[in-house]
Simulated assay, not measured.
Amino acid sequence: MCVTCGCGEGEVKIDGVAGHAHEHGHDHSHAQGDLHSHAPGVGQTRMVQIEQDVLAKNNAYAQANRDKLAERGVFALNLVSSPGSGKTTLLCKTIDLLGSTSVAVIEGDQQTSQDADRICATGAPAIQINTGKGCHLDAHMVGHALQQLPLADGALLMIENVGNLVCPAAFDLGEAHKVVILSVTEGEDKPIKYPDMFRAASLMLLNKVDLLPHLTYDVDAAIAFARRVNPAIRVIQVSATSGQGMDEWLTYLRAGMARTAAARQQTVAVLKARVAALEAQLQQAKA
């Protein structure tokens, strides 16, 4: 866990932000439920308090991000997975199909800008966050990235988190949903080995299904394990290579974008009605 691994040591780098200093430390375990991590000289009660303080601060940043995104009518997803699950390839294919003007991306990696470079090559705007030794993005980092990202009203924001099935589960970034990506080159039992992540996700993309003829992978078992942890989780089987499942994935994205845009329009209508009512009251007071 982060409390003992040194997570957060080293400088966080965000495209377009000079000398960004990560505001909070990571002297916490990120575990949900019972805590099993220990740090020398730190008692269990203090560990719990530290974790609660850090997550509370993160949640405040996340709500600020969520409010800003709602004002713009932006549908935001937090993509989480193990390293090598195919997130970036799937993102590039998604952008090609949706159109680069509809999508913006925040890329999270410990080092390099390779994934952001791949996204930018599609024509979509992308901001790279390098977390250094940090094992996840947090809402404070994402808030800074949003200030630099050219994000159109009504767009889709895809946040590709650092490859890790543990710590990102606990950190709200201000997204509408977490989407967990599990590739068929991984074990079917990942959902029960890393239950917090699959419990936190609304959707599981079972990726690289074009490889199934060459593997002894039990799709039904993987889905059953995911639903044992999270009975409500939706599952879409996809392949960026063959195109299988991409229509269903795009339908999910377009529906989310439409709901977000409709919610924004409703909020604007309510505000306009309120302004009109106040103006009417003012005119009556002057009469």
Rank of each mutant, 00 (worst) to 15 (best):
Q49V: 14
Q49E: 15
V17I: 13
H24K: 14
G19M: 00
A70F: 00
E23Q: 14
S37V: 05
A70E: 04
A39D: 11
G43P: 12
V103N: 04
S102M: 09
S29L: 05
G86A: 03
E23G: 13
F75I: 03
L91Q: 06
A21P: 02
V103D: 04
H28V: 05
K93W: 00
N65I: 01
A64C: 00
K57L: 10
M47G: 06
K57A: 11
R72W: 03
F75K: 11
H24G: 06
V74H: 10
Q52L: 04
G25M: 10
A56K: 14
Q52C: 02
K68Y: 06
G25I: 06
S85I: 04
L91H: 05
E71T: 03
A70V: 00
G108M: 07
Q110Y: 01
Q49P: 09
D109T: 04
A60I: 09
G41V: 11
H36R: 15
T88N: 02
S82A: 15
R66S: 09
A104R: 10
L77A: 01
G25A: 13
E23Y: 11
Q52K: 12
V103R: 06
Q63E: 15
D67W: 08
H26A: 05
L97R: 15
V42S: 03
S100Y: 14
K68E: 10
T45V: 14
G86N: 07
G43L: 13
L97W: 01
D27T: 05
G25L: 11
R46D: 13
L97K: 12
Q44C: 01
T101E: 15
A104C: 07
D27E: 06
D34E: 12
H24F: 15
V105D: 06
H38Q: 14
H28P: 01
N58D: 03
K57P: 00
K57R: 14
P40I: 08
N78D: 11
Y61M: 02
Q49K: 15
Q52N: 10
G16F: 02
K68G: 11
V17M: 02
D109C: 06
V105Y: 10
K68M: 09
A60S: 09
S82T: 13
A76K: 04
V54A: 13
L79W: 12
G19I: 00
V54K: 12
L79I: 14
D96N: 09
I95M: 04
E23P: 15
N78L: 02
Q49A: 15
Q110K: 06
A104I: 05
D109L: 09
L98H: 07
A62N: 09
L69N: 08
S82K: 10
E51W: 03
L91F: 10
A39I: 10
K93C: 00
H26K: 09
L55K: 12
T89G: 01
D96P: 03
D53F: 00
N65D: 01
A104H: 08
D96I: 01
G73K: 07
S85F: 05
L98I: 08
K57Q: 11
T89R: 03
A70S: 06
G84T: 05
A18Y: 09
L35E: 05
E71R: 13
G86C: 04
S29F: 04
H28E: 08
K87R: 05
S102D: 08
H36C: 05
D27G: 13
F75Q: 07
H28W: 08
H30D: 12
S82P: 13
G108E: 05
S82D: 07
V80L: 05
V17H: 08
G19V: 00
